[in-house]
Design a protein around this nucleic acid. Structure first.
Lengths: 210, 210
DNA sequence: AATTACTTAACACGAAAATGTGATACCAAA
DNA sequence: TTTGGTATCACATTTTCGTGTTAAGTAATT
């Protein structure tokens, strides 16, 4: 079994050393660096090239864990990042994932599970507590629910709205659908009424459920 | 500990009875119904009201597991659905999650883990194998790639574009940002030039990376 | 047969957006 | 110091958009 090299970015001294001891004390794991702030982490981690970096969210100085991941991931796409934090808010979770974190686990996770998660993320998995996973899943389900107001539109109106969303001028829509501009106007007017909006951008935003 | 009632929708007879035996043979779990096709499942499950429904993907007849979930979830939002399948394709995973599945595990999962996953999904988690989770995470990272053209915008221009995307009139943007309409117009003009678009909607589409 | 909903179309008015050009001021980098 | 980028404001003109009103043909429903 190969040894997984790990870097730790965590401002709390006690937690940091505890994790370092855990990792260095476990077969198959080696802690190659610890950092208490984002700036030095971004500077030094490219020299260490750990397999996995554990990231806290809050860090002293201007850089938080998210930004730290984003910068390192951009230069080292193969490096695996795992958030290790106390936060369960949707915003922070999604930001971390977008920034390039592959795993997201809470600090209350047991040492054994932490080690397992490190191995998991190194082997191509995405360990996350099932509460975190539920947030992520909820995101998909939210995405999926189309605005019920759209159901009130006729199929022609949906077609027009789709054209609107693509930024076509009325004259272009008219030409695309082989109808007159006046008819386009009419449809648009009806669409706005049904969606309770007064502008194209608002209509498109409803179309995309924002 | 409360007993978790489970329904199984699975066309393979051997797998179905094996799962039924597993569930009924374990403390804290009860299998209240098994179905070998989607139609009867959709018809009967509302009478059984199980806590958790396990769903296979492929089912005989016109209805697959995804559609089955979508229909039942619409009527019973509190019921928990878990896909139990052999498929690992992105499409099927995302479709299942959008339809309302909260968990997604593979059939190769061990009996012990399956029971654990059933409890997990019942308690508000979203159990999924970490390979599945990685697919989901990759979706976020893909989503995150901002249009590089946006980088050319100054911070003020991004601010204006954000206002544009929310559908504000020029006069409203001017008032929101404490500048004159003329300045708004100038910024918008520069934004359009940089993004190579000629309308608000096109600019907003680029902003949202479509 | 009458009603309702959808699609099509036209005209007119005012508001808003887009285009084009010119100009001033600040700040930081060359 | 000059240059370049950014932010600011102004004026004139044209185009597009949003709204109100009216109306005819079609298809489905009652």
């Amino acid at each position: 079994m190969d040894i997984i090299s790990v870097a730790i970015v965590e401002d709390n001294h006690d937690i940091r050393t505890a994790m370092e001891l855990l990792i260095n004390g476990s077969d198959g794991y080696a802690c190659v660096g610890t950092f208490n702030n984002g700036e030095t982490a971004v500077e030094q981690i490219p020299n260490l090239l750990p397999n996995v970096a554990l990231m806290d969210f809050n860090l002293p100085g201007g850089m938080n864990g998210i930004e730290c991941i984003a910068r390192l991931k951009a230069e080292h796409p193969d490096m695996q990042f795992m958030m290790l934090t106390v936060y369960e808010d949707d915003d922070k979770i999604f930001q971390a994932l977008e920034a390039g974190a592959s795993g997201y686990i809470l600090k209350k996770t047991s040492p054994g599970e932490l080690l397992e998660a490190i191995r998991d993320v190194h082997e191509g998995g995405s360990p996350m507590s099932s509460q975190i996973a539920r947030r992520v899943v909820a995101y998909f389900q939210k995405q999926a629910k189309p605005n019920p107001a759209l159901e009130a539109l006729t199929s022609r109106e949906k077609e027009i709205l789709d054209q609107l969303s693509k930024g076509f001028l009325y004259k272009e829509i008219a030409s695309n659908l082989y109808i007159s501009i006046e008819t386009v106007r009419r449809h648009v007017h009806n669409i706005y009424e049904k969606l309770h909006v007064r502008s194209r951008t608002d209509a498109v935003n409803k179309y995309y459920n924002r």
